[in-house]
Every structure is written in structure tokens, then in C-alpha cells.
Amino acid sequence: MTDTVQADRQADFERTIERHDRIEPRDWMPEKYRATVVRQVAQHAHSEIIGMQPEGNWLTRAPSLRRKAILLAKVQDEAGHGLYLYSACETLGVTRGELTQKLIDGRQKYSSIFNYPALSYADVGTIGWLVDGAAICNQVPLCRTSYGPYGRAMIRICKEESFHQRQGFELLMTMMSGTDEQRAMVQESVDRFWWPALMMFGPPDAESPNTAQSMAWGIKRDTNDDLRQKFVDMSVPQARALGVTLPDPDLAWNEERGHHDFGQPDWHEFAAVVAGSGPCNAQRIAHRKRAHDEGAWVREAATAFAAKEA
């Protein structure tokens, strides 16, 4: 490739980004842009897939047929979200097999939140309310991300997430109108999930070195701290409606800023969970690997059958 062709392509790319237009799979793009989108979309896809585990664990022990049908539909949606995102990622020239292998080998990450256990059925409600709620906060702006296939996958996902959050909130409301013991279960669950939910937005902006470049390229649309603030502001009135206390003594409305002040999550804990020593990291990956290994004969049989039919 001559230098002028290269310069033309670079300029084309930059103009597209400046117009807030989308980059499509076969367009020229800087290698670093490609790598950044692959990393973010892969991590996002892995989160959807691993995210099935904490709740999937409760499927056989749902308290009623109604709750079981709802949870089954929700977990199935998360599998779907993972598949939309894997196929978006594959448009950048990586293969599905590679992505699965990198997840299993720990070479690509998933959201730290799924390394916490779901200990009671109240957790199914709290995960829907706070974890899917935080995911929605993160995901809505990503519908306008600069990489076309990623944005289109996010639009489908956002349409489906709203049911996830509402079913969780409704579950908690039902428990809150029950016995004292049930109300205590909800509060205990919220106490455990509040801080990990705040960590879902990633480290503070000052310690997030990739944010500036990702925003300049339109891959990310908001900073971690802005999204975290938005989530806190949304959650406070919801907690009030529910009748639970958010476990943060520093949480208070700040008239001047027009936002809530709030405390910082334990960033040492966050770093430890990301590094692999959260409560469930090993279990999550071992489970994913087992599912992959135990499914091998099915994939092989389908391949053999297709070859025979061809």
C-alpha cells in the first residue's frame, strides 16, 4: 500500500468518526481501534454468558412456576445477548472458537460482578434490579457506539433488558410485602450487591487510562464516573419505593450539584476480583469449561451429520 492510499484511508476513518457516523466491518480502521473494539465486545459477550451462572443456579429451585418461567426466559435472553455480541465481534476477524478459548484460558475478562454468588432467591430480584439496572445504564449509550455491528447488537439487547430489571424489582416488591423475615432477606441481599454493582462501571476516571482514546473514537460515549453517578441518582428513589436502605452512610442529595454524593466502593476488592481472587472466579470458569468440554460430542456429531447429508 502506498503512503497516500494509507493517508486517504486514515482520513476517511477520521471523517467518519467526526460525523458520528458508523464504522462498518469491511472499512479500513486503525489496528488499535480494531483491537479496542474486539477487547470491549468480547468482554461484554463473555459477561452475558458467564452472567447466566449465578441465576441459572436457582432455576430448579424457583418458588413458583411463574417465577421459574420468568427466570428461564431471562437466563435464555442472556445467552442470546452473548450470541449477538459474539457475532458482532466476529465481524472484526476473530473466530468464535478463539473467543471461547480465550475466556476459558483467562486471557479475556468478563464483568467482575458475576464473580459474586447468588445466595438466596432474593438475590435473583436484586440482580435484576441492580445488576441489570447498572448494565442498562452502561448499555443505552452504547447503542450509539461508533462500530456499527456493536451498536446494532446493543439496540436489540437494550430492548430486552428492560424486562430483566422490572421482573427483579417486582420480585423484591413482592417479598417486601411479605413477612419480616422476607424483608430482611431483601435488605441483606441489597447490602451485598450495592457496592459490587457500583464497581460494574469500572475504575474511577483518573485510573481508567483507555477511556480518553475510547471516547475520542466514539467506542465509549460516557466516562465511568458519569455513568456511576447516573446509576446512583436513578437507584435512590427506587430504593425508597421499595423500602430498603442502600448501605452507604455517605449517600446524600447534594442540592448544589443536583446529584447524590456517595461513597467509593472498595477498589482494592475490585482489583482483587478482576485479578481472579473473587469469591467465584475459579468456579465460573471451571463451569464454563466443563459445559464446553461436555458439549464437544454434540458439536462433533452435528458436524459429522452435516458432512453425511452434504
Binding site: 449477538y84 457475532s87 468464535r96 447488537a153 436489540r156 452435528a302 451429520f305 447429508e309
Partner: peptide, 8 residues
């Protein structure tokens, strides 16, 4: 709407 992998 998107893509997927299938054996046949």
C-alpha cells in the same frame, strides 16, 4: 438481523 453458526 445478525449472524450465527450452524452445522447445516
Amino acid at each position: 438481523v445478525g449472524s450465527l453458526h450452524a452445522a447445516d
